[in-house]
Amino acid sequence: MALSTSTTRNADLRVESVDEVLDHVERAFQTHLTRDTVVRKRRSVGARTDRETWVRIERRGLDKIGVQGWNGTESAARLEGIAQPAWQGCVVWRDAGGPVMWRADETELLPGKPIGTAVLSGDPMLPDEWWKAFSSSLVALAAQGTRRVATPDTDTITQALVTESIRGVFSDDFDTTVERWVPAHADLNWANMTAPTFCLFDWEDWGNAPLGLDSASLWASSLAVPALADRVRHERRSDFESRDGKLMTLFVCSKILGPYAHPEDPRLEPARRMAEQIVAELQAG
């Protein structure tokens, strides 16, 4: 049975019919998905089940799965000291209509609502307890061991990618070599965390990445709210003060300031100012 007719490159589950996919998952998990709870994103769909769990369904092209597979949520279940929803099980199948695979992961329900969209426009006013749990989880994550390699935006992060991204936007008279690689969530933004109780979810892309990637990514998602961006830097200052953290800040700034920059993006100016400061620091050695 073919569950998709769109090409992988142009696929957008926010606008396509997903009824057949939801039906398929219900049969596989022997549960009912509550249709009025469905959350649709470009390449994933989520819904609540009648047994009080959550199912996240993702479509990914075969060229984006790679040799390590795409069992991020499943493999993250073994991580210790991190606030995340407990993983229950999964079902994976290949789409008969093209070079595409589907994966549905069932987890326990989140302890709260997602804080917002990937990029926030207002301060969520998070309590100190939230920030403590947030930082504790990131510290615990960086201390783990894994052979997985992070795939932010489904692209495997490598030294070559870091260098190419930074060199494409900024000066080339400083070294872009990453010194330390540690486990990272690799999709850390305000849409993947809950409040008032902290919980970090959507672990599809986690793996080893340059130190500071997660902190820099969340900072970039906060730039439209200066006080929030400052709080992220304060809470994760050890990352931002490290050389690798500075490179990761340039890495995320390159995505904001690069060739696809939107002229009305409120993050442009603060990203530009920070990038200029960091480039000067790296040039000074």
Rank of each mutant, 00 (worst) to 15 (best):
L138F: 15
W190G: 08
T249F: 06
E74G: 04
L120F: 02
A143G: 03
N189I: 01
F174G: 10
P111K: 03
V100K: 00
S254N: 05
P183L: 05
G69N: 06
V252F: 13
A261N: 01
T249K: 11
V21R: 08
H234Y: 09
R94I: 09
L223V: 07
I166D: 08
I57H: 09
V67H: 09
R51A: 03
T8M: 15
I65A: 05
E20I: 02
G72K: 11
T154D: 06
F29P: 00
A118C: 09
A76N: 10
V139G: 00
R56C: 09
Q159A: 08
E281S: 13
A184M: 08
L161R: 15
R78W: 02
T177V: 09
K41P: 01
E179F: 02
M274W: 05
G212Y: 05
G245C: 07
W130Q: 05
S222F: 03
P226F: 04
A133E: 02
T117F: 11
R267E: 15
P85M: 13
T49Q: 14
A184E: 08
W102N: 03
I57V: 13
G207R: 10
T156S: 13
L62R: 05
D239N: 12
V119F: 12
D23L: 12
V91E: 08
V178Q: 09
I82N: 04
F240K: 14
E241I: 13
P152R: 15
W203V: 08
Q159M: 05
V225G: 10
R267I: 07
W219E: 12
A2D: 06
V182F: 12
R56I: 07
P266Q: 12
S136C: 02
T37L: 06
W93S: 14
I57M: 15
A150D: 00
E52M: 01
T249M: 11
W130T: 03
A271L: 11
S171L: 12
G168P: 00
R56D: 06
D214Q: 08
L228D: 10
D123R: 09
G97A: 00
W70P: 03
W93M: 11
L141E: 01
A77I: 03
D214E: 05
F29N: 03
D123E: 02
G122Q: 07
A104M: 07
M193K: 04
S238L: 12
M274Q: 15
A224P: 13
G69H: 06
L218Y: 03
T34R: 10
G122A: 07
T176V: 10
Q68Y: 04
A86Q: 07
D173M: 15
F134H: 07
R40P: 05
W203L: 13
R272C: 02
A191R: 14
E20R: 13
I157P: 02
A195E: 05
W203K: 12
T73G: 15
D214H: 13
M1Y: 08
E164H: 10
A284Q: 12
L62A: 08
L33T: 04
